[in-house]
Amino acid sequence: MRKSKALSALTFLALGLALLGLSNFVDELRVYQGAQIGVYIIAISSIILLTGYSGQISLGHGALMAIGGYSAVLSFTYWHLPVLLAFTVGALSSALAGFILGMAAARLSGPYLAGTTLALAVGLPSLANQFHILGGEQGLSFDIGEAPKWIADKTVGEFTQYKWFFWITVLCTLVTMWFIKNLLQSRYGRTWKAVRGNPSAAALSGINVGRSKVLAFTVSSALAGLAGALLAMLLGLVAPMAFTLTLSFTIVTGAVLAGVTNLAGSIVGALVLVVIPELTDAVATHLGGSQKITANLPGLITSVLLILTVIFAPNGPQLHKRMRASKKESSNTIK
């Protein structure tokens, strides 16, 4: 057990170094998209943890990302915190909001929870117009500045702003994935799975069902908050327009495409979310489509994918295959 843990830590480390190294050899746009993928991975993992493991649904994670983004920017601007600390503040304040929401959520089931979080996603971003400190419709700008010299000097070529974004995102993503992976294998992860599988049985085994659900919601919100803060960094600002209902839907879509019970799938989901607009853009310009079509094709394709996935492979593409394989095995043994 110890050994495999050390091994997986090493894998994460190697992966991180490889990614950072890679950032020297690809162009600016790809580096930026790499950072986007990182943000999506964290956001999708937060949904996977919540829906796939704890069995709760949230259509309002865009709002929780907004809370994370705004708190990070505010603490960075007014308290002059270092960037990573500002991100922590973002994650923590989002966790607090998630804790409160989770208390309500633990008492709600399926459609009620979906509707409540939907109302939050629609309502919360518009609060920015109400408080002067939140900057209204234009939002607040967020400039984390250039990379410190001791990092910039040690790398090959010019150390651009996007590369710095990418480095920070990679660091955050790896730490987050490492954290979730271990959390899901811990007592808490097992508790969540037990509650999702059969709440009554879980309660009879001495699990506090409500508390377990609230905890899942809180952790998931913290992750969403971190993703929101990173997103704000990438965009260079926080504004209501950045945290729309579409964002909430997008990350749920990513999670479903990833297979909601499969943490590693979040990478696939994030890739799909970033690659599809890129692909459709290429196709649309090639075919000479109008701006209307170019702007809406990505949404169209992801929606179709979402519907097909939920009908034909509700547990996600990968798990589905695995389940079929195990079913085959068991039928063989019966013979």
Partner: peptide, 24 residues
């Protein structure tokens, strides 16, 4: 594992689909 939320997800997908379609 997602049976409970599958219909919610499907209707969301429809919402996204129709929105993009009207937008296109």
């Amino acid at each position: 594992s997602v049976a409970e939320i599958a219909p919610v997800i499907a209707t969301l997908g429809m919402l996204g689909l129709i929105r993009s379609l009207t937008g296109a």
